[in-house]
């Protein structure tokens, strides 16, 4: 088992190297660089530009070097914890991302838990009561959630939150806490605002998850070992939990790998609508202004999270499923 985990972790290295190359290429693809768009912006607003200063900045940040050298500079810096410098914010990338990253991870985490809490009981109910009114009703509600555009739901929810709970519009906390250090009051304010993005981002994922839990469980419910368990005299619910449900978890754990990035990247539009202090809007603006280090580091971060998510799900699967653990006659 230990050797499996080590082996599996080592697989991450070539994967991440490949991803970093891909990310770098993607960022390099659009013509021009940050300084060109900066100059264009200055000219557009009627200001004069000192070409020498721009040239100096270019050299300073290594933009005159050939791409592969810049690539290595970037990668080596990242390994050492230096994610480069954001031109737009005039700050190191690490400081720009900073808090936002934690908020993002926090919201993502809450959303995943929310999705599971809702989707699992409903999915199990739908599967065990297939084609009943309950199944149809819950499926209908779930599909409504899937079909409603997230930004619209976000606007509606904000309105109702303001109307009935007096929650301030937008943001993750009340305006007076901006740039304040973390305190009890600020934490409470975050919790007060948190439920809107969690529900908004969670609904669409929940609907999909319900369908998948239902489909997977239905497949398993028809398997003969379920009959075996019933023939043994197991109470229905206990048998359901121990055998088919446990089997249907496999798909779901395999899904963790893809759930992390999809929740983070899927939430960008919603984050802008709700003016959340998360990473989504930052990424979008960085891509727009060709803020190369910021965007690149960001994409790398997402990739890293994905790879970690897949690693977690692989290890969890191996723990949960002996067929994977003992595949190929591995000794116990």
């Amino acid at each position: 088992m230990l050797s499996y985990i080590i082996k599996r972790s080592l697989y991450m290295i070539p994967t991440l190297i490949l991803i970093s190359m891909l990310v770098f290429t993607l960022i390099e693809l659009p013509p021009g660089d940050y300084f060109e768009s900066y100059v264009a912006q200055l000219l557009a607003s009627g200001e004069t530009v000192d070409p020498q200063k721009i040239e100096f900045l270019r050299r300073e940040y290594g933009f005159d070097l050939p791409p592969y050298q810049r690539y290595f500079k970037w990668v080596i810096g990242m390994v050492q914890g230096d994610f480069g410098y954001s031109f737009e914010y005039q700050l190191p990338v690490r400081e720009v991302v900073g808090d936002r990253l934690w908020f993002t991870i926090f919201i993502t985490f809450c959303t995943i838990i929310f999705t599971w809490l809702i989707a699992f009981p409903i999915g199990i109910y739908s599967a065990t009561h297939q084609y009943s009114w309950g199944d149809y009703g819950l499926t209908f509600i779930g599909l409504l959630g899937l079909a409603t555009p997230n930004f619209l739901l976000a606007l509606v929810m904000m309105y109702f939150a303001k109307e009935y709970f007096g929650t301030s519009i937008g943001g993750l906390y009340d305006p007076e806490f901006i740039d304040q250090p973390m305190s009890w009051a600020k934490a409470m304010s975050i919790l007060e605002h948190l439920w809107i993005p969690v529900i908004v981002i969670g609904t669409s994922g929940t609907a999909g998850m319900i369908r998948r839990v239902r489909a997977n469980l239905l497949d398993e419910l028809r398997k003969p070992y379920v009959t075996t368990a019933r023939a043994k005299g197991m109470p229905e619910f206990r048998a359901l939990m121990k055998y088919p449900f446990r089997m249907s978890l496999n798909f779901f754990i395999a899904d963790i790998g893809s759930i992390l990035p999809s929740v983070i990247s899927g939430a960008e539009i919603v984050a802008i609508v709700l003016s959340l202090q998360t990473t989504g809007p930052l990424l979008i603006s960085a891509l727009q202004s060709q803020d190369m280090y910021l965007a690149g580091s960001f994409l790398m971060l997402l990739a890293f999270l994905t790879v970690i998510g897949v690693l977690i799900s692989d290890i969890a699967l191996a723990i949960l499923d002996p067929r994977i653990r003992l595949a190929g006659g591995v000794s116990r």
Binding site: K223, P224, Y225, T227, T228, A229, A231, K232, K242, Y243, R246, M247, L320, D321, P322, R323
Partner: peptide, 17 residues
């Protein structure tokens, strides 16, 4: 009353000893 099934592979859960 207990039962013995036809397919010994599928009649047992693969995830439990």
């Amino acid at each position: 009353i207990s039962m013995v099934f036809q397919e010994p592979m599928t009649a047992l859960s693969p995830l439990h000893t």
